[in-house]
Design a protein around this nucleic acid. Structure first.
Lengths: 213, 213
DNA sequence: CGGCATCCTCTTTGATACTG
DNA sequence: CAGTATCAAAGAGGATGCCG
């Protein structure tokens, strides 16, 4: 990206991460942690492969990511965020919150990946910190993700849960709407969300407005 | 901007404001409030005039700004942020904080405008809320800005102060460095900042680390 | 298969000139 | 003042080829 040539902190930030795709690459690395090239490509549907490699090189020379040649068992290099790169989290979080307003209408032909639930999940809290650990599986995309609830915290991992106490399956917007307090769990079920297992685990992590019966 | 086609809040936000110059236009409107076309052009050195008019039209149709034909005394239309547009403030603030790391090196040929101090000023606080109102003028660009300190709050206006208690003049990076606690007031003076007037007003608003003697 | 590099086309940007 | 018109240059997108 051509520099704006302005002595302004915002313009300087945009000089570094204002290019198309750049912040979405950071999103992927924040959610996934160390990632292979093909993981990134899969998490960025629509990116041209040459652009991905261009951006990775630019991000590396800007000091936002680090390329690590993995030891022999793994045949491939992993891309990691540096400290500087990871400090973009508040920027992505602000975008996430502002962009929620555009998530209401059902996606028409939009791509979806289960791990994109991450920012929603990071804003949840376990309202029963002394309760037993619990596990939830979300099935809204071809690849499920699992949510761990324990000790007041809610976290996310890629892939299916081993022994989920609760499984949610249905449209992404229903799960998202519930997690963000736009619709209640009951409304989500009416609209087609399938909930099977221990519903209390769900009520434990939903914002109060969405947990209302 | 071509849509990313992803059902992800961050991607949706970037669909709307990810284009080059767009967020800087929002910056100008956040700082200045209602602005004329030429005010915007002056606050965005380097923008091509056709791009500014393109972006303004796009932002209007996206519902982020409103064009108001001003009543007869003013001969021209004013551009305002809508509620949706103003809610981008946390995004700009996050960029502002992240971008500060690139403000340390002295600008080489970068343009500067006094009102770009706004985000720094908004993060200051008046540490003597019961003290008398005070006024500071900053002269670091061709057009000065004035800072009002009163009742625990620090605010900024465009243009010179009427009867400043204190005047700071010198390089933008010295004022910025002080306001952000990277250098002390004493160090800023050593490095060439000129302080004239009531220094106590300065110590009242600087972060504690920068106010150390 | 992972990780690019190349080639080509199309769109966006930037610089400048011009107009109501 | 507040834009529109024009045109060259840069960047994005898509297809394909290469190499360990």
């Amino acid at each position: 990206m051509r520099t704006y040539g302005e002595y302004c902190s915002i313009a300087k930030a945009l000089d570094v991460v204002g290019d198309r795709w750049t912040l979405l690459i950071v999103r992927e690395l924040l959610i996934r942690g160390g990632s292979r090239y093909t993981d990134l490509r899969d998490g960025l549907p629509g990116i041209a492969t040459n652009l991905l490699s261009d951006r990775l090189r630019e991000l590396e020379s800007a000091g936002l990511i680090r390329r690590e040649e993995a030891p022999p068992p793994i045949a491939t290099a992993l891309f990691h965020l540096t400290e500087t790169g990871a400090e973009l989290a508040p920027v992505l979080d602000a975008f996430y919150r502002w962009g929620l307003r555009y998530m209401a209408e059902p996606p028409s032909g939009d791509a979806f990946r289960g791990h994109w639930f991450a920012f929603s999940i990071w804003s949840l809290q376990d309202r029963d910190p002394d309760g037993p650990p619990a596990s939830v599986e979300l099935r809204a995309a071809s690849t499920p993700v699992s949510v761990d609830v324990a000790g007041g915290k809610v976290s996310m991992r890629l892939g299916p849960a081993l022994a989920p106490d609760l499984v949610l399956s249905g449209e992404p917007r229903l799960i998202l709407g519930m997690f963000n307090g736009f619709i209640t769990a009951a409304e989500a079920v009416d609209l087609g969300l399938d909930i099977s297992g221990d519903v209390d685990v769900l009520l434990r992590i939903l914002p109060e407005v969405a947990a209302a019966t």
